[in-house]
Write a protein that binds this DNA or RNA. Structure first.
Lengths: 108, 108
DNA sequence: TTTTGCTATCTTGCTTTACAAACTAGTGGT
DNA sequence: ACCACTAGTTTGTAAAGCAAGATAGCAAAA
């Protein structure tokens, strides 16, 4: 339907400030996406890197293993804008369907 | 992310009134989903039938080939309600991300 | 009557998405 | 030494999405 809602969300997060996988997974939890699995996030980040939407740089951390910080690219910003448009279209389409008001069963 | 937004939309359409594949594809177009391919709709309908969410009945048509009208089941109605909930959660999560207001770049 | 065009459905096969699960590895506390 | 938390990658699998083509009924134009 809409390819990669998650990808769009990651672009938004990363465009706000560079993030690494683990912190992204925590941020998503805060935004209500309960527990998006690592098996989804990491491969997606790698794939987004291949597409040139983000670039990752390993940086050492004092409180644990190295972190791979991702930065958004120009292409990524463009893709982000496109996602926001697609989302708003999709969102209003689905909402108009849901509120079709056919008096069938919604509120009773 | 959210499994089958399309499935949810079909449940809503069919719960409103029984429909057949071709009419569903036309209805979707009216609701702004431009041209959802048949290769997506028909297999999905068959799959939803297997899951017991809908039942299909062939009925002859005077203006063309036979049509397979789908009717929603009790399970389908339940699934529909669940979809509407999931959608509203997802939708508000994504919107809160989009309107994160980080003064980074949205309106300039 | 043959062809074209619209309606209608199904099937095959490919690509992408999503994810569980396992593996590796650094740091700090008990 | 062991556990818990942080952090990342890889592998394998199932499901989703869809293009493309096969099949077929009907009707009006050629």
């Amino acid at each position: 339907m809409l390819k990669g809602i998650l990808q769009g969300c990651l672009l938004i997060l990363i465009s706000d400030e560079p993030m690494y996988g683990y912190s992204i997974s925590q941020a998503l939890t805060e935004f209500g996406f309960q527990d998006v699995p690592k098996g989804t996030i990491y491969p997606l980040l790698i794939n987004m890197g291949k597409k040139g939407l983000i670039v990752g740089k390993m940086q050492p951390s004092k409180e644990g293993p190295k972190r791979k910080y991702y930065y958004i690219t120009a292409d990524g910003l463009q893709e982000k804008a496109q996602f926001i448009n697609q989302w708003s279209t999709l969102s209003s389409n689905v909402n108009s369907l849901i509120h079709k008001r056919s008096d069938n069963d919604e509120s009773r």
